[in-house]
Write a protein that binds this DNA or RNA. Structure first.
Lengths: 346, 346
DNA sequence: CTGAAAGCGCTTACAG
DNA sequence: CTGAAAGCGCTTACAG
């Protein structure tokens, strides 16, 4: 049976005070003789003593809990845990926290208030947030002194207890777009989810623009596609793309997930990929190599994002600051089968 | 700023005792006059008072925390949160818990001891476990009195505080196998992960056998493939299948994830699907409709598994028992493109 | 209807 | 080196 033993029980059996036991648990070697320490350690082991975190959190006014928040203020019938990107980040967080005796409290929320509530309720030691918009960060900053790390949110300057981890989105998208150029494409379209001011997609769009401008190619509105679920469904959206077929030889996507859905729909409309339209994705989800054609994409190490977020928090707990914050994780092109070289066709 | 206010602060401002405040929070209407209640409620609202869960857990000797455990005792470099099946269950748990003021503590573990540790450390109110083997359940049963619900673990009888949710695996696999029969197949192979005694795959195998026997088809060892990662890699495994190509017209898989990987590998070996081999999966992952050919599979509602697990726990907290336990969620065939009708070819 | 008291399991000064 | 005391924020009998 899982028997629950308290400090008091250990103290009684060892014939010492509760706080001597506390001292050996906290390894304050100077405060207790080797002999007593050994005796106490044995009893602790014998009963497999585990400290009660509630009691600890209460006196410390802080728990060993890290809140992992999936945030989305727009309503969406899909639970955010169904998105593999989010849960791959979670995988990374889980891995480093459990090796450092911190625990993971997870929740998907749709308001900032819910985040504050969790922090207050559990006196969370730190918070990791996915999906918060740049313009909401100042509200956060004004309300929290718990360390927070934001994943994939771009903020002008990191002040106070706000830290970030991300990738170089703009450069990543230059890589994607250059790959199409290198394969002879000039009529290149851009596909993303609906526009969010200051979000990562904006940076990626800039990367797209950078490359076209560098090659003297005009940016044409008709080649920009933004998928807004509230306005139309996937099929209608792909009809829009199909209509512009003749203006496009290649498409860069801000997310593999979106690219996969669109490819699937375009194919059902009789458009062949990559013969008629080449496709470059972004993320390199684990499923991207199983779709047809196998998706050429820009790889980012999603799990590492989670690991870094956790490491930043750990560093802040220890040193009260972190120089890992603001890091941009590397990205890398992964060539597969969704891009056709059309250099010699013209 | 997120200001942290305690019962004592509220009591002082309201000129009442701490426990009168406590009484209004717990809605013990009989114990406090309407007038005082109203006054206190206003102050609570004004300061946005949030109870400190650590303090509550300490006095109650139980927290509002549900531990969601991903368990796997074999070593594997993949983190369990990278498996979409697991996180879709998590999505369901998240949804019901957050509407009932319970919180979700998640961790992937590789020993039962780690599970006990989490329960003791946090005085978890309940536990949800994925991936525990039938023969480990008795150990669990002997050691825990916290309510536990097991997902996809088959146990002989539900006793004590152990509850289960699952599907009818045997019948689900009959459906998969019958579909191949209905399309003219008789040389049907079975593909699963490595054998686990008493696991869901064993039930699925029995469903496979049921159907073949009902149709007078002999069960042939050469048509049974078990993928054991420790023994060989995916490529080698698919070579084994390719070798037996002539013994097989169709394959039933115990998991879409496995089916997708195998299809991919077989194709790279020049085997066309479904022309040479038809494939039926199991699970209906959200990615299964995007692979080529689109996977025909047996759908199960994974998110509902998580919801039901959470609901069982909630019911046990309230009524001290649950009649939802042991439920088998429905399954359903989803026809797509990975099965060829060969009835008229022979 | 209202409140004083004890206690949950721990930690942190402080005294010896 | 060891321990008695106070307190973290809450709840639960119990007394009035």
């Amino acid at each position: 049976m899982v028997i629950i033993v308290t400090l008091k029980d250990i103290a009684k059996e060892a014939n010492v005070s509760v706080m001597t036991v506390s001292n050996v648990i906290h390894k304050r070697k100077a405060k207790v003789s080797e002999k007593t320490e050994k005796k106490i350690l044995e009893i602790i082991k014998k009963y497999n003593y585990t400290p009660n975190m509630s009691a600890r959190s209460l006196v410390n006014n802080s728990s060993k809990l890290i809140a992992f928040i999936l945030y989305q203020n727009r309503k969406d019938e899909r639970n955010l845990f169904e998105n593999p990107f989010n849960t791959e980040v979670l995988a990374g967080v889980d891995e480093v926290l459990k090796e450092n005796d911190y625990y993971l409290l997870v929740q998907s929320v749709s308001t900032l208030e819910e985040i504050y509530l969790i922090i207050k309720t559990w006196r969370a030691a730190g918070v990791i947030i996915l999906g918060i918009l740049p313009n909401e960060v100042s509200h956060l900053k004004g309300n929290i002194d718990t360390p927070v790390v934001l994943i994939d949110t771009i903020i002008p300057n990191e002040a106070g207890s706000i830290y970030t981890v991300g990738i170089d989105d703009r450069d990543g998208f230059r890589i994607a777009t250059e790959h199409l150029i290198a394969n002879g494409h000039r009529d290149i379209g851009f596909v993303s989810y609906s526009r969010i001011l200051g979000g990562v997609d904006e940076q990626r769009y800039l990367g797209y623009v950078d490359v076209l401008e560098a090659h003297g190619i005009e940016i044409i509105d008709d080649r920009i596609f933004r998928y807004n679920k509230d306005e139309m469904n996937m099929d209608e959206f792909c009809n829009e793309i199909a209509k512009k077929k003749n203006l496009i030889t290649g498409l860069v996507f801000t997310a593999d997930f979106l690219a996969i859905e669109v490819m699937n729909s375009l194919r059902s409309k009789g458009i062949t990929i990559p013969d008629e339209i080449s496709v470059v994705g972004f993320d390199n989800l684990s499923i991207s190599k199983f779709v047809t054609p196998k998706l050429t994409t820009v790889h980012q190490d999603i799990t590492t994002k989670g690991k870094e977020a956790a490491n930043i928090l750990l560093e802040v707990f220890k040193e009260n600051e972190s120089d890992r914050s603001g890091i941009k994780l590397p990205v890398q092109l992964v060539e597969r089968e969704s891009v056709k070289n059309i250099e010699f066709e013209k």
